[in-house]
Structure formats: C-alpha cells, structure tokens
Design a binder for these strands. Sequence first.
DNA 1: AGGTATTCACATGAAACTATTCTCTGAGTTAGG
DNA 2: TAACTCAGAGAATAGTTTCATGTGAATACCTGT
Length: 398
Amino acid sequence: MGIDNFFQNYLKKKSFFLDSSVLTSRYVPEEIVYREEQVHEIANILAPALRAEKPSNLFIYGKTGTGKTLSVRYVLASMMQIARTNAIPLKCIYINCKLKRVADTEYRLIAQLIKFFGQEIPPTGLPTDEVYNIFYKLLDQEKRIVLLVLDEIDQLTKKIGDEVLYNLTRINAELHNTQICLIGISNNLVFAENLDPRVQSSLSEEELIFPLYNAPQIQDILRRRSVKAFRDGVLQPGVIEKCAAFAARDHGDARRAIDLLRVAGELAERTGSPEITIQHLDDAEKKVESDKILNSIAAQPKQFQLVLYAIILISPQKKQFFTGEIYELYQNLCKKVKWNVLTQRRISDILAEFDMLGVINAKIISKGRYGRTREISLSLDEVLLAKLKELLEKSLSF
DNA sequence: AGGTATTCACATGAAACTATTCTCTGAGTTAGG
DNA sequence: TAACTCAGAGAATAGTTTCATGTGAATACCTGT
C-alpha cells in the first residue's frame, strides 16, 4: 500500500471529531454553566471599566479546573465587545504567570506586558528599572482603563516574591491617563496569607471563591461540549459518566476531564475503532499521565536525568532507599561518564523536585541514632518505567 | 527501670558564585566624498 | 565625515556551591531503687 493510498483512505474515513478544539482549554463556550453566579459577580465588579472608572482589584481563588480562567475570559471577551462597539478605551491583558520563559520573572512579566502594547523588549541585557520605565511610558500614552489578568499568580510569587505585585499595585499613583485594574487568579486558597500586607489589602479589594464542580455537573459540562466536539453516536454510553467520575475523584477538575475525553477520542480514532469506548478512556488516562511525566523529565537538565537514572538502577534491588545511597551511586555514575559531581545539597533539592513531579515518593523520616533522611520509592508502573529508562538512556547517550 | 543527653545523616535556608546570553556604549577603523 | 566593527561594562537567568542552622528519635549514659 502506497503512502498516497493511506492518505486517500484517511480522508475518506469520517473523523469522530466535528471540532476537537471544543475540547481544549482555549475554547470559550458561548454559555457557561454552573458558574452563572460567579460570572455575574465578576461582571458586576468590572463593569465600572466601561464607564472609564477604575474597577476594584479582584482576586479569584479556586482549585484547578473550576472554571476560573474560563469565567474571567468570558466576561472580558464580552466587555471588549461592548467596548469596541461603543468606542470605550478599554484594554484587557491576560497573562499566565506560570509559563516558563514567558512570564515567570519580574523582568519577563513586564516585558510581556510591553509586548501587549506592541513593543518588543530584548530578553535580557536591560536593567529592570529601565523596563519599568518603558512600560510606564507606554501605559500612560493615552487615556484608558487597563484590565490586567494575572493567572496562576501564586506561582509567580512563590518564585520571585511579591515585590512585583507591590509595584503593580502602586502603578496607578504614577499614571495620569491610564488606570490599571489587577485581576489575580490563584489555585492556592491560602495564597494571600504569606503576602506583604500592603499588597494583600490592595490586591484583594474584592474576592471571589470558585467552588468545585460535582460529578453530575462535570457530566453535564462534558455532554455539552461533546455535542459540539463529536459526531453523533460515536461515544459509547457510559464514557461520559466514567470520565466525570475520574475527574470528580481528583477534586472536580473539569479541565482534566475535558482533556481526557479529547485524548480518548484521538486514541479511538487512531486505532480505527468504530466508537469511543471506556477502554479508550482508561488508556487515555494512562497516556495523559505518562506523557506528562515523560515530557517533564525530558525537559530537565542532564544532571537531573542522571540522578533519576541512578534511582532507576537502584530500584529493582530495593523497594525503598535513602538519599545517601542514591548520592553514592550517582557519584559513581558521574565518575564513569566523567561528569563533575554535584554536591549532596543539590541532589537533595533534585530529589525534592522529583517528589513534586510525582516520579518518586519521598518521605522524610528519622532513623534515630542513624540520622534523618528521605525514604524514597519509585512510584511508576512497569510500562512507564521502561519508557522512562529508554528515554534517559537515549538522552544521556548510554 | 526510667529519664536525660547525644548524635547521626541528612533537611532546609540564605547568600553568593559561575557561565551564558544578551544590550548598550564608545573608541577605533574603514570607506566614500 | 559617516558608517561600521568590536571590545568591554553591565544585566538577567539558570544552575549550582558555600556556609549555617535545624531536626526527630534510636541509642548511650546516668541515676536512684
């Protein structure tokens, strides 16, 4: 069979999907269910912007996948629409602070903001003050209200502290024309607690908490989306229910449920199955999970990978092992491949990060007279482990 | 036996350092008029 | 003289080292019975 033939067939085969973009996190439906109240509230708080008055700063809390980002985007989109038709000088900026190498430092955040005003800033080399100055100038060029959404703001402060936020809240005092309104979105419910009190009070003039979705709600959301995403009748009965159950199991994360459904669809399509079954959903869950881990490992520096390799080498012999054992093996590996050896301090941090990633299970225990250490075990299944080993060997060229 | 003090093997934190990548500046060089 | 080149100073960032301090309980060491 020629490759042409393959593509011919591919085209002839009817896809499951009408529009798979409906099942991505970028998609904003024209109607948001189970969040009417919050949408209303946000709209209420931000409405003064349409009269060219500065709205109160707003802070939104809620776990992942509870519709925070979606609701804010929805409100902003419709506000922008109205602003456009009525020629109201309003500008909305959405920034996700978690994005590596985009907006995860003070410098880059401001640089990103400047980009929204149509100017490029070099990625390094300029003093931060200078960048602030450029930003101020740009901001104050014309009279308008700026709504600035900072998504995953907790990640930002965790990494670089709250000085940026302090600067941002103080901007208004320095500006003559523009007023800027901050909308912070955080996954962490106790985020504001370890913030400078000045920032705290000015940032959360208004607060909003997004509750979790329950299983029936997620089911409904999935149904609504799947009607738009899939052709009729390709979903085996029970798939949506199971998908919702998955999501409800780990704290009502709707985004994950939606992702899962899409991946299940893609898997089913690739295997040429006539419909999307529960089996596909199970596979999808595994795939999503393992892809996440594999990708994050592949993106780590070589030294990380070598440490992980050491862990993998140790793991068949023992179920549990300690920091010291890994460090010793790691040192030997380093000598073998002639790399310089990192300090134990560093390895300790690396292990902590692996714990965060969910690759290992680490518990700090005290062995009394024999010290304190991490008790570590691998938390991956056989298949993923094999894949991971392969990835590491390739990446480290063993 | 029961109570206290030690001690181990790291954990955790803060600050400082290093290498890399980048900009900006201004001196020196070149080429055209 | 204008345009170009290129070294040097200064930044931001990621990854790391150095130095300092913290810590939980098994064991060693007492004490008084």
